[in-house]
Design a protein around this nucleic acid. Sequence first.
DNA 1: TTTTGAGTTGTTCGA
DNA 2: GTCGAACAACTCAAA
Length: 478
Amino acid sequence: MKLVWFRQDLRLADHPALHAALAGGGPVLGLYVLDEAAPGRWPLGGASRWWLHGSLAALAAAFTSRGSQLVLRSGRATDIIPQVAEETGASEIHTGVAHEPWWRDADAAIAKTLESAGRRLVRHRLSTLFEPWKITTKTGGIYGMYTPFARAVRAGPEPAQPLPAPKTLPGPDHTPHSEPLESWNLLPTHPDWAGGIRATWQPGEAGARARLKTFLARAVHAYDAGRNLPAEPGTSMLSPHLHWGEISPATVWHACRALPASAAIDTYLSELIWRDFSAYLLWHHRTLPDQALRPAFEALPYRRAARELAAWQRGRTGIPIVDAGMRQLWETGWMHNRVRMIVASFLTKHLLIDWRDGERWFWDTLVDADLASNGASWQWVAGTGIDAQPFFRVFNPLSQGEKFDPDGHYVRRFVPELAGLPARFIHAPWAAPAPILAAANITLGRTYPNPIVDLAEGRARALAAYRDTVRQGAPEAA
DNA sequence: TTTTGAGTTGTTCGA
DNA sequence: GTCGAACAACTCAAA
């Protein structure tokens, strides 16, 4: 009897842990543990809980239809894994390599407990293309820049070819108790805010495959430019499926490699490598989600501005492209990557609010909330993380909007009160002449906010704060 | 050990 | 409208 402990690998295809458990031919059980009390754990955000419900339902159905079962338990994984192993007499427990610090701590404890009972915890690479401990610089160091990391992994062997999904799963005669999924209350009820999310996403392996198919049929071939236009379906939208492991990155990688090579496809592969790089960084820097990778930036004089943070969260900043992005996030649980950079730069630079406040909001509202990608990306935008720091890189939301949403379709979709403005003013309603505002039924300050910060002043304030911090943190000359 | 070339996604200014 | 330089210095990774 063998157990497969699922975490962020909610699939049957290309699942080496499941494959290994099936290798002996004996019965196999799936197990998922809802552990919300692990020390140091970031509690699941609302959007994540919604997704998890759907994905577990799909995985449980897949197990049942193939002859076995997915057992659901809530509580501390450090107790439950050994306990279920005992109940079922499992000799091996197969699971994925986790990058989150709380899982790594739990895994170490569980491996020890199991070992003393004569059982084995076996970890497999399930959520990344490469194992983080295998990628080092020539001198054995840890990469701190994307480009050398990407060069190194591209120079190495390709990720292994994906494994097929098992057609049958031999189940045991007696299955242990499983809690009803509904009893976990993962779905919102009062109020049910998930309507826009339901309309946008299909959690589970089938939904993941459908997204990949759609992306490969069209958008990937124009990915270089198309990925920057938030009004267009130019991105893969695979991020939540990849985060939850409903499809493996190796599956996506090889599906792309099977297409005729092109610069566009290569750009997309770079994004997959970025995802791996974030996981790599979290593996080697456990404090990535909580502390500036460059300690000097801990001294940045962030502003405590609860009202401005709230305005940003709810898409009421008065900057159309920022508000459109934040409302897309709120409505659909996802935001286009180009716009993520714009809103993150606006929060950390123009408003000079701590990147961790933005990181936590994203964590709670994104269906693809991922500790590694979220933390690494916020630090990248805030200029506190990897990558030499051209901290003067401050996105101008006005020119970004005009450049990447030239017709304003994206803004109109998510900020409908501005829909009547002509493209010329859609990104800067404050600059529109009174008759045009009147014709569009807009009263600034009433139907749509005035900008909560002057863009030029905010930029200047951020540059000064960063410059002072860098100078102060620099070692004194000898 | 020292040197060298370079670093995801930007903005502004002036020619 | 377009182009290149400046932004300001640092750190990384390999030679």
